[in-house]
Every structure is written in C-alpha cells, then in structure tokens.
C-alpha cells in the first residue's frame, strides 16, 4: 500500500507529510513531524494527553486518522507560547505548581486554552467538566483548576482596556 500525501497547517506553518491510512494524527505529529509534546497515554481517547486543536475545536489526536487532516489547521502544545513568551495558561501552571510529572500537562494546557478562548469567565464546575477528558494522576486536579481560573482572570484583565 503506497502512503498518502497530506497537506496541512501545523502551528501556523504549512506542513506536508506521508502517512499510512491507518496512522493516527498523533502518530504523525510525534513520529513523522517530531512534535512529541502531544503524548499518547491511552490511544483510545480516554486520557486527553494527545489533545490538539483541529480547525478550531479540541480533539484527541489519537482519534483522528492522519489522512483526515488534509487541508485542515492543527494547533499543538508546541504552538501555544508565542516564541519565548509563555501563554498565561502556561505561566499560571508554573506559578501554581499545577504539574508534577508533567506528562499530562501539554494536553491540559491545550484544553484549558481552548476553554478560555471561548469562555473567558468559567466557573470552577465549568473548568472541571471541560477538563474531564484529561486525566492527571499526580495532582488531584486542585492546582490545575486554580491555575486555569487564575489564567482566566489574568486574560480578562489583559483584554480590558486600561
């Protein structure tokens, strides 16, 4: 079986790759493109460690076939910071010690940013339900939820003209 050629945009840059039809988008990001920030914790959509944003919606990249990405726009953890400037969600994860081992962190940050991009003022409950697809085994979620709420507050302040 010959491989399929796919053209996409990844973190703002045009990207082409060859893939097997049965490969997941996550396989291609990690093994072909070298973007190993998205993690595979389960391969079945149950942990969220592979969360990326596909055409504006967050998805588990392990549950997207690589050829489906043709012509689509993908945003991964590697594109969340602007150059060396961390996104407020990233900064707040650091300040709140919202990570221990850090393996689930990229998925949480992509998911949390996706939440704040559409809901600038979520309640604690909204944060918890939005992030329910992301498993963390280290933190008990407490500091993650606080970091996201604090990042939301900071983003609201940034958006408010002084």
């Amino acid at each position: 079986m010959s491989k399929i050629r796919v053209s996409t945009t990844v973190n703002g840059d045009a990207a082409e790759f060859l893939c097997e039809s049965g490969s997941s988008l996550l396989d291609v990001l990690r093994d072909t493109m070298g973007l190993t920030g998205s993690k595979e914790g389960c391969g079945s959509g149950d942990c969220g460690a592979c969360t990326v944003v596909l055409d504006g919606e967050m998805v588990c990249s392990c549950l997207v076939l690589a050829p489906e990405a043709e012509g689509r726009t993908i945003a991964t953890i590697e594109g969340v910071a602007e150059g060396s400037v961390l996104h407020p969600v990233q900064q707040k994860f650091l300040e709140h010690a919202a990570l221990q081992c850090g393996f689930c962190t990229p998925g949480f940050i992509v998911a949390a940013k996706a939440l704040l991009d559409r809901n600038p003022n979520p309640t604690e409950t909204e944060v918890r339900y939005w992030l329910a697809g992301n498993l963390c085994r280290c933190t008990g979620y407490d500091k993650i939820v606080r970091a996201v709420l604090d990042a939301a507050a900071e983003l609201r302040q940034e958006r408010t003209p002084a």
Partner: peptide, 9 residues
C-alpha cells in the same frame, strides 16, 4: 458521550 474532545468529533 465521552469528553469535550470526543464530542467535538
């Protein structure tokens, strides 16, 4: 069904 990530698909 599933999570937000899953329901987006």
């Amino acid at each position: 069904i599933g999570s937000v990530q899953v329901r987006n698909r």
